[in-house]
Amino acid sequence: MIVFASCIILFLIGLYAIVTKRNLIKIAIGFVLIEYAINLFFALVGFKRGALAPIITQLDTPHNFVDPIPQALVLTAIVIALGTTALMLTIILRIYSRYKTFDIAEIKKLKG
């Protein structure tokens, strides 16, 4: 219970950065923190006490493994997160090269 709650608090920290920060890099950091929170939550949901990693090493033994499905879902999501983060940073760079600032309030003022 407290383990899942810490994931959700990490999610809330990321959301706090996105909603209230004015610096674009801080907003990107908030997005990455939310990605970590969700990946961590999935991996913790699949954990089984006293079980092994889901890799078969011997035939004919009773299988006591953790849940492989959340791990399979998260495995692809981690790599995708890197791609989307790079896309986000590229857009941030374009904004910086045009307005010479990371402050979203300034950017709103300079528009038009």
Partner: peptide
């Protein structure tokens, strides 16, 4: 939590994330 596949991917991806952020 017994997820070695995820740990390998996460370490490498984290290195690249920090490199891209620092480059920017």
């Amino acid at each position: 939590v017994q997820a070695p596949d995820l740990a390998i991917v996460q370490i490498v991806v984290e290195v690249l994330t920090v490199v891209i952020f620092v480059a920017v």
